[in-house]
Simulated assay, not measured.
Amino acid sequence: MRPIIGITSYVVPATWGVWHEVSTALIPNDYVAAVELAGGRAVILPPDERDADVLRVLDGLLLAGGPDIEPGRYGAEPAPLTESRPERDAGEFLLVRKALELDLPVLGVCRGMQVLAVATGGTLHQHLPDVLGHEQHRPAPGVYGEHEARFEGGSLIAKLMGDDLGIHCYHHQGVADPGTLRVTGRTEDGLAEAVEAPDRRFVLGVQWHPEVTRDQRLFGALVEAAG
Score class of each variant (00 low, 15 high):
Glu148His: 12
Ala226Gln: 08
Ala221His: 02
Trp16Val: 13
Leu104Arg: 09
Glu21Val: 00
His171Cys: 06
Ala90Met: 07
Gly112Ile: 12
Val223Arg: 01
Ala79Gln: 14
Asp199Gln: 13
Val212Tyr: 08
Asp199Ile: 00
Leu102Ala: 14
Ala14Pro: 00
Asp164Ile: 03
Ala64Cys: 10
Glu188Tyr: 03
Gly179Phe: 10
Pro178Arg: 10
Gln207Asn: 11
Phe93Tyr: 11
Val175Ile: 15
Gly162Gln: 02
Gly75Lys: 09
Arg97Leu: 05
Ser23Pro: 13
Gln126Ser: 06
Gly91Asp: 05
Ala90Pro: 08
His137Gln: 13
Glu70Phe: 06
Gly142Asn: 06
Thr184Leu: 06
Pro13Lys: 07
Glu92Trp: 06
His171Arg: 10
Leu218Lys: 02
Pro67Cys: 03
Thr123Asp: 12
Ala42His: 07
Tyr144Thr: 01
Val109His: 02
Ala14Asp: 11
Gly190Arg: 10
Gly108Met: 09
Glu77Trp: 06
Leu61Tyr: 07
Pro105Lys: 10
Thr15Trp: 12
Leu26Arg: 04
Ala140Ser: 13
Leu61Val: 11
Leu132Gly: 04
Leu128Met: 06
Leu107Ala: 09
Ala33Glu: 13
Arg138His: 14
Gly179Lys: 10
Leu181Lys: 09
Arg73Tyr: 08
Thr180Val: 13
Glu188Arg: 14
Gly145Asn: 05
Phe202Val: 03
Glu77Gly: 11
Glu21Phe: 03
Gln114Glu: 15
Leu81Phe: 14
Gly190Pro: 11
Pro13Arg: 07
Gly17Leu: 13
Cys110Trp: 11
Asp53Glu: 15
Val43Ile: 15
Leu102Trp: 15
Gly6Ser: 13
Arg56Thr: 14
Ala176Pro: 06
Pro67Ser: 14
Gly108Trp: 05
Ile4Gln: 11
Phe202His: 02
Arg150Thr: 15
Met161Tyr: 03
Glu152Pro: 01
Gln173Asp: 14
Thr180Arg: 15
Trp16Gln: 12
Gly60Val: 06
Gly179Tyr: 10
Trp208Met: 05
Val32Leu: 02
Val11Ser: 06
Gly17Val: 11
Met113Ile: 09
Glu49Cys: 04
Leu62Met: 08
His172Ser: 10
Trp16Lys: 08
Asp48Gly: 01
Leu218Ala: 04
Arg111Lys: 13
Glu148Met: 03
Gly91Lys: 04
Gly65Leu: 03
Ala25Ser: 14
Val43Lys: 03
